[in-house]
Design a protein around this nucleic acid. Structure first.
Lengths: 197, 197, 197, 197
DNA sequence: AATGAATGAGCATTCATTCAT
DNA sequence: AATGAATGAATGCTCATTCAT
């Protein structure tokens, strides 16, 4: 349900109104309860669908023919752009974190959905270590963290950031610069120094 | 009002109940309205106080005696630790971003409050450029962004992240590693590489 | 349907949920409507079945070989014990009375079902009058009333009574005493006193 | 709140609508929640008030100048008539019993409210034993039970009873007869045989 | 400055019931 | 005979807010 995603991501769980969601759908509010049980059930389904969709977009890559370094670049660029394109998803996740991950922790499928994302970066990293391009001994999970941090922050804190210091970074060129910085910062951690340009 | 900070950061603007705040204070709900006008007014005051406090903590540094590189390190480490210590603040900011910065954009003092933070990094960066340690031509605002991104993400997405991939990164040693990575990633962007020298 | 009896007797007509009844049956809710029309129809069927069953239990007696006095005793003891055993029935009847007998008054078979009960006591009373053991001129219906009052009250007001004055009367010995009292009180009304003889 | 008593006694706890109560009062539904917290709170208050009122009516007697036997008669007649006059109360109690006394068991004042009723019968019985009019060794609580049973049954099962066997017992003369029977049945248990007329 | 009482509008949720197949 | 999907109308309850004092 796209409209539920919009409502929940726009107003958070508490702010979201089942009424609004129903009114913007062809079905009635009553049907929402018929299918999802309650507001939390609807939220759960929405969250899950949003995660699946985001994963699909992040994984829409063909890395095998790239060098590990180039592949890693893609693994930074892609989420960076996607978080921006999937503002609703990013907001939904921010909201779920405000709820202390209450819902996500109870979703049995949640870990399974996310596993491939870690595997992806793991594979590329392993290839890079093998070719000698990458430093050995790094934690792929920390790498993933390093990739997601700027991509997520860029979207989730956009409003307070630009309220404080202006919109300069949120122009097209500003975003390009940030993306480049994000790439460089990840590479500097992963790639062996003598190899870096 | 500390209790308002807790309530708003814990439940977001919509989830927060004026009742709860009143009940946990010595004053009555009626008095809250007397002083702050409405819920939004209370929220505004809370937000402002939280920002002031966070700024004070981030600026609790004596950088003049450090080399620019060492100072920059501090400028990364300090917010990283502070965001963690000030979870309530970080949550509050996340909530305000979900509201699209609605409140923060109308606060006339907001830009003024934040300006010193940018000036701080600007000063250090200028010194580093002067001494030749830092690359020239970088945007201090982008640097600030690069500093805040990991510090904020680390706290604001903690729950979904650890729900997806476990708590490993949120142990003491995990946090140390992330902080080191954050430092390294910033330095790699700012500091001239000795190889290319 | 036993499960309907439980639901209606447990929660009353308003409190009963057609859903609950359906879920605890092998048939679906939809089928309940198919067979009984509506909730009231289901209730009607339940009530009728419960009355038939109670009557069957109350009449499970062989009085012909007893003296009228002994038979009368049985006619007191039996319902007293049965109302207790048939708590569900007693509760159902209490609920129907709260509805002002709305349903029972529209059941055409209702009077017919109950008639044998009155006939039973009538027969015994007539025999007793004939033998001279019983006072003449009493109204058998009033006798029936006198028999049912303690038996019913004992169950239907059990909870408020024991909440007010403790459970003492609802122990095994307590119940025995009450039953004896009920018997004695009926006999005192019906049986000729030997003193006045 | 008289109107709450009517609503709850008329429709039971589940059937009662807070809306109805509010509409029939000068206050709003919102105020009901302000004062009583929730539906259960309103019910609790209603139940308590009804019990207090019933007690007041049952105790509106001056027994000191009567012989124990005459006093005991009053103790049977009074509740018998009162249960009839206080139909709402009797229905409310029946409803509470259907709820298994859930509410009444949690009311801390409940036992205290009822104690005087037992003391009253206790006092009269003690006097009667002293004068030799009454049999010794009876349990005053069982006596109370014997008094309340017909009085309560008479009202609480009125509808099913008259639906089954007609209204004959619920005419004025019928009620008089039942009351006499109730008196006689209690006396026969309490009063020594040689004394009973 | 301070407050107890009041309120309109709205919320998530539930229920008995029926439509289309 | 049997059923999954659909629904209008309520229900208990809550919330931010204000009135009168």
């Amino acid at each position: 349900m796209d409209v539920a995603l919009v409502e929940f991501s726009e107003r958070g769980f508490d702010g979201a109104r089942v009424n609004h969601i129903a009114e913007m759908t062809s079905t009635s509010k009553r049907m929402l309860y018929y299918y999802f049980g309650d507001k939390a059930g609807l939220y759960r389904a929405t969250l899950l669908a949003a995660y699946e969709n985001a994963k699909a977009m992040d994984h829409n890559l063909t890395l095998n023919e790239l060098t590990p370094t180039e592949a890693l670049k893609q693994l930074v660029v892609k989420p960076f752009n996607n978080r921006s394109a999937l503002t609703s998803f990013t907001r939904l996740v921010a909201g779920e974190n405000l709820r202390r991950g209450e819902c996500v922790k109870q979703l049995p499928e949640f870990q399974e959905i996310n596993r491939p994302t870690l595997e992806l970066i793991q594979t590329v990293y392993a290839r890079g270590v093998e070719t000698g391009e990458f430093k050995a001994g790094l934690d792929p999970l920390a790498l993933l963290w390093l990739v997601l941090a700027p991509a997520t922050f860029n979207v989730s804190n956009q409003h307070t950031f630009s309220a404080a210091w202006g919109e300069k970074l949120y122009t097209e060129t500003g975003q390009q610069m940030l993306c480049d910085m994000a790439v460089q910062s990840v590479l500097s951690v992963v790639v062996k120094e003598q190899d870096s340009d």
